[in-house]
């Protein structure tokens, strides 16, 4: 695959430059990371979660990470899928009041209890919930859990998704989406920092 992929575009990598050569040193990783992106955001089987829902969750997840090299990409993709300004503004508001630091959380394991820490959990405000709906609101609260306190995952957290109608396949899809973004953002940040140290 020689064409620029999502990471190349987000990081403004040109064919043949030093960071391009680093990425092409691992061709299977390079192509499968792109394939992972496509399987989530350009799904061949759209049964589980609509594409606009996927990008809505992605916009919030990237914004929860602060200013990332991928934020503009997901903002743009979501804007193409969802034109209602009210929805976009509400997702930005949720991201702003959801932003915290992590990972934090209670450990389930007794020996790790002294390391347990606390922090704010996201609860979508009622006005925002009316704009977004219960289904998307539940996904965003779950995404916030996965971003900031994954060790507090529990059957009761999945039950909240089931209670508003999400199926097993849809829950697997959103878990993959948030988990993949957690990876992709860190690759983008890591490579950007690496490049920033180069003198040439």
């Amino acid at each position: 695959m020689t064409i620029p992929d999502v990471l190349d575009r987000a990081l403004d990598i040109s064919i043949g430059d030093r960071l391009d050569l680093v990425r092409r040193g691992r061709p299977a990783t390079r192509s499968n990371v792109q394939l992972s992106y496509q399987s989530i955001f350009e799904p061949a089987f759209t049964g589980a979660l609509s594409v606009p829902e996927r990008f809505a969750v992605a916009v919030v997840v990237v914004r929860l990470h602060g200013d990332t090299p991928l934020t503009a990409h997901y903002e743009q993709q979501f804007a193409e899928a969802e034109s209602r300004a009210e929805i976009i503004q509400t997702l930005h508001d949720v991201s702003d009041y959801g932003r915290t630091s992590g990972p934090f959380g209670q450990f389930r394991e007794p020996a790790l209890a002294p390391e347990s820490t606390d922090g704010p959990r996201l609860e979508i405000r009622s006005g925002d919930r009316q704009v977004l709906g219960d289904e998307l609101s539940a996904l965003l609260e779950y995404a916030h859990l996965l971003v900031f306190r994954p060790r507090e995952s529990a059957p009761a957290e999945l039950q909240k998704l089931v209670d508003v109608g999400w199926t097993t396949g849809e829950i697997v899809a959103v878990a993959q989406l948030v988990a993949f973004l957690s990876f992709q953002i860190r690759v983008a940040v890591g490579l950007t920092v690496l490049r920033s140290t180069w003198k040439d």
């Binding site: 691992r26 890591g190 690496l194």
Partner: peptide
């Protein structure tokens, strides 16, 4: 460069894998 990129990829990937293992 390649070794540092491998370290970045290895660390980044477990931010993916941990979230699947922990959440499901």
């Amino acid at each position: 460069d390649v070794e540092i990129a491998d370290a970045i990829a290895g660390a980044a990937f477990f931010n993916w894998a941990n979230r699947l293992m922990l959440s499901l």
